[in-house]
């Protein structure tokens, strides 16, 4: 499985959250489902983005702490074991260097009607996202 095989990160390739963390990733994918994470990482990598995956909110915070530069965009799952997507978002925003990173909520339900607009959420993307939508949003939020 691409994100979970130990490998050295390099541009254009999905990265492993367990491997060494580069200082310059474009996109952080926080997603507990291995297949979803792998698909997102692969699709974005094919478009030339440098992608880092994380299987939980706690792991993502650890990844962010190791990065020299924050990512340009975060894809964030909502329902995850342990820390939810909203919990992660609150924690991440406590770091003043991470407050401006756009976050795309990537979720299996159309939660927007349930939860309304959340501060710090740039976009809601319902799973399974259409490839065109995924890439358009990524381009829009990583100018």
């Amino acid at each position: 499985m691409i994100p979970d095989e130990p490998r050295s990160p390099h541009p254009g390739s999905p990265s492993n959250s367990d491997g060494p963390v580069s200082s310059d990733y474009d996109v952080l994918v926080v997603e507990d489902d291995q297949d979803c994470r792998e698909v997102l990482c692969s699709l974005l990598s094919l478009e030339g983005y440098r992608v880092q995956g994380a299987a939980s909110g706690a792991e993502a915070l650890d990844v962010l702490a190791k990065m020299d530069e924050p990512p340009r965009l975060v894809f964030l799952d909502l329902v995850m074991p342990g820390m939810s997507g909203f919990d992660f978002l609150s924690e991440m925003r406590r770091d003043p260097t991470l407050t401006e990173i756009p976050v795309v909520m990537h979720s299996g339900m159309s939660e927007q009607p349930y939860f309304g607009t959340r501060p710090g959420v740039a976009h809601w993307l319902q799973k399974p996202a259409r490839l065109d939508d995924l890439l358009a949003i990524t381009r829009q939020l990583t100018p």
Partner: peptide, 23 residues
């Protein structure tokens, strides 16, 4: 309490992409 992922079939249907091994 439901976490949404993607099954093998839908992964292929939506993204034309099969996992290298069965998750």
């Amino acid at each position: 309490d439901v976490s949404h992922g993607i099954c093998r079939l839908c992964r292929e249907i939506y993204y034309g992409m099969l996992p290298k091994e069965e998750p």
